[in-house]
Design a protein around this nucleic acid. Structure first.
Lengths: 147, 147
DNA sequence: ATACTTGCAAATGATTTGCCAGTGT
DNA sequence: ACACTGGCAAATCATTTGCAAGTAT
């Protein structure tokens, strides 16, 4: 179990690597896109598009933040989860998949390696025939602190 | 594992029972509220507010449908789940809790008794310290048919 | 008669889109 | 230069709310 989204090694060293990825994909690197990336990089936890804009000073506007997040997600550099009802939360991810658990009371988000949820997944498959995936919609419940 | 939301015995016999519950709670029974109830009763699967309105002919309007669903939910007669991104899906429920699994591919929704998920819940609590609840946000994955 | 309900319109909140001006490459 | 981007306003979608008129009890 890891607390933050940064606990795993990334598929890139720094933001310059990401920008290279972008250019290689035919995208352009601009002040707004840098701001989005920087905000995600500095974040200690997943951020909403709104929060990214706020942390970026006047460097990005909301609609552009969403467009950038969409591109970055397509590149596999960013990922987002949907908690309770709140807006989607974005985070920088390295290489592989991540899956999530969230506390419906305090909003905490736990990011874990898929392998850590295999036992749960096996149980669900066995019992219900479903192949569970918690990468986009998390396991919702109460965290240890909130119980 | 039960397929439909009606598989368990209800805490009420028929819609007249529900209407009695409403009146006892100080609510009024009107044509719109009857239409909402009837649509839910006739449904073979959870329905969106929009779908309820459509099935009710011109008997209810969307905003009122939402208001009715809210009241019925407070009475414990109705419950709703949030699938992928789509609108919330409402269903009539009997007495106890229900928890859900949904297929992200075909949209199928499985309603199960909480006890059936206890093993999963125990595993999650043990491994991550979270007390999982799948009553409002389901386990998302691929059902047997879609895998 | 009174208070709860309704329909309709307008407000919200998250996210998307159209458009044209601005700018990486 | 050209195509990709950005800002801004307007459009969507699901859901909520304000309000005056209607109605169940």
């Amino acid at each position: 179990v890891t607390e933050a989204p940064h606990a795993e090694p990334r598929a890139f060293e720094d933001l310059e690597d990401v920008r290279r990825l972008m250019r290689d994909a035919g995208h352009r690197v601009s002040a707004p896109s840098r701001a989005v990336l920087q905000a995600l990089f500095d974040a200690e936890a997943p951020l909403s598009a709104q929060a990214i804009v706020e942390r970026g000073g006047d460097a990005v506007e909301l609609a552009s933040a969403y467009r950038n997040l969409e591109r970055l997600e397509a590149l596999g550099v960013v990922r987002h989860v949907h908690l309770g009802h709140s807006p989607g939360l974005y985070m920088l991810v390295g290489g592989g998949e991540r899956e999530f658990l969230t506390c419906e009371r305090c909003g905490r988000v736990e990011s874990v390696e898929p392998a850590e949820l295999d036992a749960v997944r096996d149980l669900v498959r066995e019992r219900f025939g479903y192949e569970a995936r918690f990468g986009h919609f998390p396991i919702v419940g109460r965290c240890a602190d909130c119980r």
